[in-house]
Design a protein around this nucleic acid. Structure first.
Lengths: 200, 200
DNA sequence: CGAAAATTTGACATGACTCAACTGGAGTGG
DNA sequence: CCACTCCAGTTGAGTCATGTCAAATTTTCG
């Protein structure tokens, strides 16, 4: 049962975030409210789990999550850290209508809004300006991914870690060694050595 | 001066490609025709040049192009190979309204359609189903970029080259050693050794 | 406090890089 | 037709960054 007002005041942060991108109407907000679900995860809890049937995406309201892939040797590789105002979405499984190809866990107390993909897609049809805004966000996401690929191609592990610190200072505190090392493409031992400045 | 019919029969390939994604009308086709320009590049010619003012994107009709970034030591790093039916686009410079951050060159005789970004954006507003199709393409692009990042994180140079051969068999023929090596994140010497199977 | 997890450290192995020399075409001009 | 250059590719030797494995240490948390 919905409350008369929005399900929770939590969603207002999402509206605020969205209002910077597109013009909101009360009807639009009501639509969003109807299709979103507030969820809360504690440190270490899984938001997505590999192999799970998946048709949701998540907007991070507070906290931080880590998305990772597990290779066939059982090693985890961090694909991405998702902070406040970021989306968590396994495009691959959604697109292929498949089970989750990656997992995602909360690195601390993390609040999210959950959306069903089909609901969102329907909203795109109803509000083209929403889809337009998403299209632009995806372009930004692509820029950041090329940036990361280039870092991997041109920079040493040390430099990559330095850039990481600038980009995600909070994550350096929240995530453990292994998470960050596997994001940078090095071992946790190497990261530890980088940090201890044995290698300058 | 436009011809009565479409500027060139070349564009019909683009229409065919697009028709698999969205429904085309003759008015829509006319719009596309009006805003696109057919261009042709020979092997080694630059399609984009770093530092150039940039507000175009290109659809590859035939041939193959390579987009690359030049680091501060002057080394080139291949960001992407663009084959038939792919887009070449420097989202970074377009988004930031900046000069091109990357360069792009033809690896063989390559035909493209050139679009002005503003014209395309206008078309998005006019035809939301076009923007919707682009949004989905961007999601696919993101999937492929994560795939590449994961390859870089989990696979050895050897395995990455093997995957590359499966994914881009044509490019292995067209591009030279250096292009492919810098795409894989290794030196041309290492690639040469991988190929000669000295390292299994 | 005590067990488990995370991190650091050491010793050693190795994949990949660097620098440099060599090879083999492709194209040019005498 | 043969030198000649130019360029891409290959190969070798030595070095270095990073990985591996294992042990030691520190931190976390019930």
């Amino acid at each position: 049962m919905r409350k008369q007002l929005f399900q929770t005041e939590k969603i207002s942060h999402f509206f605020y975030w969205l209002s910077k991108k597109i013009e909101l109407s009360s009807e639009f907000e009501k639509n969003i409210d109807n299709i979103s679900t507030y969820r809360c995860f504690e440190k270490g809890e899984k938001i997505l789990d590999k192999g799970q049937a998946l048709n949701h995406m998540y907007f991070v309201l507070t906290g931080c999550a880590r998305s990772y892939h597990i290779d066939n040797k059982g090693n985890e590789h961090t694909m991405r850290f998702a902070l406040k105002d970021w989306w968590i979405c396994d495009y691959k499984s959604i697109r292929n209508n498949d089970r989750a190809s990656m997992s995602s866990e909360a690195l601390c107390h993390t609040e999210v809004l959950e959306f069903n993909i089909n609901d969102i897609e329907e909203l795109y049809r109803k509000y083209p300006q929403l889809e337009s805004s998403v299209r632009k966000s995806l372009e930004l996401h692509i820029i950041s991914l090329y940036d990361r690929i280039l870092n991997q191609l041109e920079l040493t592990a040390k430099k990559r870690y330095q850039k990481f610190l600038l980009e995600y200072p909070e994550v350096d505190q929240l995530a453990n060694n292994y998470h960050i090392a596997s994001y940078l493409g090095i071992t946790q031992q190497s990261l530890s050595r980088l940090r201890s400045k044995k290698i300058l």
